[in-house]
């Protein structure tokens, strides 16, 4: 037997489900996508911190020192995206005198967005990081 609904009730479930689905995707996006973005940001920052220190420790005012500094950055095994992806497009810059400081930038860390994309968010979110280290750092005294 067919059930007739009141006119004002027709379509209510569809609207309620649509609103609930958007809210659900937003909550999942905040937890999942934003969580991954923060991790990638943190991983990139830790990498550039170590890379800048590695580069700065090789500086001696010569071109050979710059080559050794770039090699030291390239040898670092650290990865991002929960430790699964190698850093790419890493930029290493030096002070004009080639012995004071090194600056490392990791500009291309693009986190793929899973849930927020479904409600109008971007497909990828880039989380760049950069660090500067002095060639003669202050040492710990303990």
């Amino acid at each position: 037997m067919r059930v007739r609904r009141h006119n004002s009730e027709q379509g209510f479930v569809l609207i309620a489900m649509s609103v609930a689905m958007v809210l659900m995707l937003a909550v999942m996006g905040l937890a999942f996508d934003l969580g991954r973005i923060y991790i990638a940001r943190n991983e990139a920052q830790v990498f550039t911190d170590a890379a800048a220190m590695a580069a700065a420790s090789k500086l001696d005012g010569t071109d050979a020192g710059l080559v050794r500094a770039r090699q030291a950055v390239g040898r670092l095994p650290m990865r991002w995206n929960l430790g699964t992806k190698a850093f790419s497009g890493v930029v290493v810059e030096f002070s004009a005198d080639r012995q004071s400081w090194a600056r490392v930038t990791a500009p291309d860390n693009q986190v793929e967005i899973t849930f927020l994309r479904a409600i109008g968010g971007p497909a990828v979110f880039t989380v760049p990081a950069h660090s500067v280290a002095a060639a003669k750092p202050v040492r710990l005294v303990e």
């Binding site: 220190m53 420790s57 040492r139």
Partner: peptide, 12 residues
Amino acid sequence: GKPAVEYPFVGR
């Protein structure tokens, strides 16, 4: 084995 970092040794 993760997270992992590798730093250059710059201490004394």
